[in-house]
Design a protein around this nucleic acid. Structure first.
Lengths: 198, 198
DNA sequence: GTCTATACGGCGATAGAC
DNA sequence: GTCTATCGCCGTATAGAC
């Protein structure tokens, strides 16, 4: 495998497991099987390396979520599109891409200038989610009184927290995704019918 | 105010906003209005300081949640106790205690030995929540098929993510808490009555 | 492209005066 | 109890050989 790719993969595993601040360049080099100094042939700095992780990880999540939503029947209900997006995001961070997983773990931990450089793509992703939610709300399928800002923050907090699940204590990613989708759409309470739109 | 207390408060604000690894002792000292060297009269090390934050923060959350649940009528439904616990935890981290807020932010970021020293109290808190959830499930008020481990991780991920909400874009802590409680119990979907226990 | 060797700075921690 | 001064380590980054 190309060295640059090995470095990115090694960095992603470590960032995902320990976070950015707790990962030394020597750790990354060791896991990638090179000397620390050699990293600088491929990346200008530690910050440039993590910046690349953010970029690739977000792109990967974006592509998978977008594709999952687009592959629904064109007459699919907006709420179905939201459900598909949630499932796709979870599959990506839990299963498909170590780099996407790392992105979600370290986004809020990196130095300000790295975040700033990443902000545009992060916002684009957020805007896409917001449009999905607004469509569902306009269609009367989401609680019309729901504050989408609060909901969005809560939703991402929940989804990204699932990367901390111990694999041996849960089923596969599909199983986790369906639990989360069920929780978000219908909650965990039994026996109290939902009220209709007010 | 006693210096030790000022130091703890200053450290908590910084830990909550930037995390542990991104907070220098010089930042803490500056905010507390002392010289860096003076910190060592009150705490043996940086790790000891954050350990104290974890301890106090967890104790504070514990007390508030416990009290909120206990102050319910003794015949309150188990699901009501869960709702009260969620609300209380949110009020604590959003409003009541900077130290509790800091605890939730840095728990998964501190060095291993600090975490290890904190593990017992963290587990006790988790066990209390698990008992609340199991009671509700046994009473048939929570979806009987729900995986409580996955739910617990998701729930805490969601609750602790609310500390990232920008205050100017949301109502007060009570308002946020009621959104989250509603989301957890009944979900965000409109119009599809929940099925009864299967 | 990768290595070895080293420069450089930052930060946690200690010593000792007051 | 708080200050000033300083030590020493660790980790990022650079230089230059191969």
């Amino acid at each position: 495998m190309r060295t640059r790719q090995r470095i990115l993969e090694a960095a992603a595993e470590l960032f995902r497991d320990r976070g950015y601040s707790n990962t030394r360049l020597t750790d990354i080099a060791e896991r990638a099987g090179v000397q620390t100094g050699s990293l600088y042939y491929h990346f200008a700095s530690r910050e440039a390396l993590v910046g690349e992780i953010l970029h690739i990880g977000m792109g990967t999540a974006w592509r998978h979520v977008h594709q999952a939503v687009d592959s629904l029947a064109s007459d699919a209900a907006p709420i179905e599109r939201v459900a598909a997006a949630i499932k796709a995001h979870l599959l990506v961070v839990l299963d498909i891409s170590t780099i996407a997983s790392a992105q979600s773990r370290v986004v809020n931990e990196v130095p300000d200038d790295v975040r700033a450089a990443h902000l545009d793509e992060q916002r684009a992703y957020g805007n896409y989610w917001r449009s999905l939610l607004e469509d569902a709300q306009r269609a009367g399928e989401l609680d019309p009184g729901l504050d989408l800002y609060v909901f969005g923050v809560a939703l991402f907090g929940m989804m990204n927290a699932t990367t901390a699940l111990q694999p041996e204590r849960v089923g596969d990613a599909e199983a986790v995704a369906s639990i989360i989708v069920g929780l978000v759409l219908d909650g965990v309470r039994v026996g109290r019918p939902k009220r209709r739109a007010r």
